[in-house]
Nucleic acid binder design. Sequence first.
DNA 1: ATTTTATGTCAGCGTTGTTGACATTCCAAG
DNA 2: CTTGGAATGTCAACAACGCTGACATAAAAT
Lengths: 169, 169
Amino acid sequence: MGQGGSGTLGGENLLFLTDEQLRKGIEAMFFAYRGFTADPDRILAEHGYGRAHHRALHFIKRTHGTTVNNLLNVLGVTKQSLNRVLRTLIADGLVESRIGRTDRRERNLYLTEPGRELERKLSEAQRDRMRAAYRAAGPQAVAGFRQVLESMMDDEIFRQYIALKERRT
Amino acid sequence: MGQGGSGTLGGENLLFLTDEQLRKGIEAMFFAYRGFTADPDRILAEHGYGRAHHRALHFIKRTHGTTVNNLLNVLGVTKQSLNRVLRTLIADGLVESRIGRTDRRERNLYLTEPGRELERKLSEAQRDRMRAAYRAAGPQAVAGFRQVLESMMDDEIFRQYIALKERRT
DNA sequence: ATTTTATGTCAGCGTTGTTGACATTCCAAG
DNA sequence: CTTGGAATGTCAACAACGCTGACATAAAAT
């Protein structure tokens, strides 16, 4: 949808896609992503963690009881890489790993209370920045922002993630 | 332009900033950034380089003759970290490092022809994806996209970069 | 001329990505 | 039931790229 109405989008609407415009978009993405991760990074550093720990905490919270396998599909890293991060989180008591009931090879992952607390702190910092950016830009800009981001994702990965969430209900 | 009409943005427009909406934005940022870097990453891997090399090539092209010091301010990394990357690029003949004329401590950095060629290949891959996303979302969405990204940056870093570009003219 | 400051290089460490080897568990074939 | 293969997760070792510390060189200040 939305592509049918190309009649209103004349050739002049494609002209604005100069290399210079695209370059500005690319650089904006680079600088913005740095801002986007800056606040959580500071909190993580205090705890001796890195960005990978944040991602794990985030998605374990999002999909309570998920397995290691599910998680690494979403995160797009190898299980070995994820495992190192999980090991420290489990050792520090932020994540609980229970052996699967139906399949004993699987591990179901849950946040403990301390885990939820740290996740909340990280999320809040990131949400604060996102909220400030949203407010400064306005609702219409936000809609555009989301549209462009969703077009920029690897469709494959994204659909996988969506499917994963739905499978869990 | 466009920002003057804040009168049309009532309180109800702030209500949409639920935690759930913000979370979606955060995840979109995460997935989109992965898509954003995926194509260049593949090309870089073929050459035995990483993302850091891409960033260096990009900004050396953008600001021809820039110094190491300028570059690491833009990139937001330590000079030691940047140096490792620069060393390989110089050794491989993609970047030329000339001793500064006015200040012999400085090194002015330039892309060689092979350097320009790789940079072009990387940029094109990234621009292709950005262009596709822009086209799919439409001009208005693009404007919003840029607005939100710019609000999300660390002002300090961004202003530094802008100032840097202007100082160079 | 000597000390201080600025720029860039070299060495070594930590996080987090990678591949390879392996233990455990499940399931299907015989 | 047993055996062989597939799936899940863990352990080990390596590479990319952040970081701090130590240092050489050049410029600037005293």
